[in-house]
Design a protein around this nucleic acid. Structure first.
Lengths: 239, 239
DNA sequence: GAGTGGTCTAGACCACGCA
DNA sequence: GCGTGGTCTAGACCACTCT
């Protein structure tokens, strides 16, 4: 399940260790992590390296630092965290997240117009298209449509996605890492399609996220259009 | 208008310089910034310091780094950027943003229930409450309600807010800096109050953000509930 | 005063992109 | 091959918090 820490830079290894300890409950909300100097001696690293790891945890909202006190574990979000989440950081509460493929990956031309500006290369290659529903506590919460450039993605359309993270597959089979991204956020009314997929009435307010992910492949971006029913569960973000 | 750079750490000064050059158009989308080594010699700094400044710009979406190439200026968001924006980073497109006070700051007890859990100290102190409408291109886009703990905030209720940033006033008059925060995001239907303030029909889909800001004062948080009409302008975020 | 995180220096070696 | 950013070391001094 977990990725091996071999080959990763030191600060990343330490990050993964501490992150796991927090999500596993070794450290809980309000706990103080070992001090930077202690982490240095424990892991045989120097302070800039340790601080790099801690900075990442701060950016992702797992800890907060307090000058003169220490690094304090922040409360884990109670809602569904899909914002500000990138890289190996996967959605929180994933134990309760189940996904179901609505449209299996197929190769087709890009939608026109598209939500983001595309490069010539992207347009000429076409895209791999798939639709998914994600359930939270057995209720359909997310209906997402994904667009992946059809550039050097062998056998992608025949892979099994059920209950597997799209980003996990991209990382493990194609060595594609998500480095960041941007998104447009809107509140819209559910149309007939969205209403059916999310089990709501037509006209129900829906959160719409249009996202563009940066990857470690230059010029290679992943796009998602996500419709989210926030009636019972808010989407959670940090900044 | 601009804050003086005296007293700021070196990496922060360099950040402010580069950020201004980007927002002022000295560097435009696609331009490559001077290399890290060049910035070192220009500003008489060492690489970790320069990198710290660049890291901040990356986190806020102003630049992207490409291994072996350089730091490339990212396109500035076209929508309204109020997510992932903290500290001295103010909203983009602010030239077109005008704000109007709906309810002048008054001291009152906290709403019960409140959108976030409050500490005993916060509850016992009461809060400073104010409501605002913000216009984008002369259309009402944001209706926001702000809650500030009434702890050591002399003369706050008599200050002039019209067209001034709340965060600017907090920084300049009370030395309060925003360090980060968290938010809950929902799509809701406009009720009668929201509909009036944002000039939409009752039932119109509205983006609702409930935000909690961390500050440099320990235990001191700012809270905002923001209703946003995203019909014409999406809200923009980076991650 | 002791310990914490915040800032900074002055180097080093590596992997990547490009000509 | 060269310049770029990515990682890392081994120190240093300061400001803040708590006792």
């Amino acid at each position: 399940m977990n990725m091996p820490t071999q080959g990763l830079p030191h600060y990343r290894k330490l990050y993964e260790i501490l992150r796991k300890q927090i999500t596993d409950g070794v450290f809980v909300e309000g706990d103080i992590l070992p001090s930077e100097n202690e982490l240095c001696t424990i892991h045989k690293l120097t302070r800039p390296t340790v601080r790099h790891a801690l900075d990442t945890l701060v950016n992702e909202g797992f800890i907060r630092k307090h000058h003169g006190k220490g690094s304090i574990v922040h409360k884990l979000p109670k809602g569904i965290g899909i914002l500000s989440i990138a890289g190996t950081t996967s959605a929180l509460g994933k134990l309760n997240l189940r996904s179901e493929i609505l449209v299996k990956p197929i190769v087709k031309p890009w939608n026109d117009p598209f939500m983001f500006k595309l490069s010539e290369t992207e347009i000429n290659s076409g895209c791999i298209y798939m639709e998914r529903i994600r359930y939270y506590n057995d209720k359909p919460i997310f209906y997402d449509i994904n667009f992946i450039p059809n550039i050097n993605m062998p056998r992608f359309t025949s892979r099994i996605f059920e209950n597997r993270s799209l980003f996990d597959i991209l990382r493990k089979n194609y060595q594609i890492e998500i480095k960041g991204g941007e998104q447009k956020i809107r509140a819209i009314e559910a149309n007939i399609t969205i209403a059916q997929h999310l089990s709501v009435k037509v006209g129900h307010p829906i959160l719409h996220l249009e996202r563009k992910f940066d990857t470690n492949r230059p010029g290679f971006f992943i796009y998602s259009s996500i419709y989210c029913n926030t009636k019972e569960q808010a989407v959670f973000g940090i900044f």
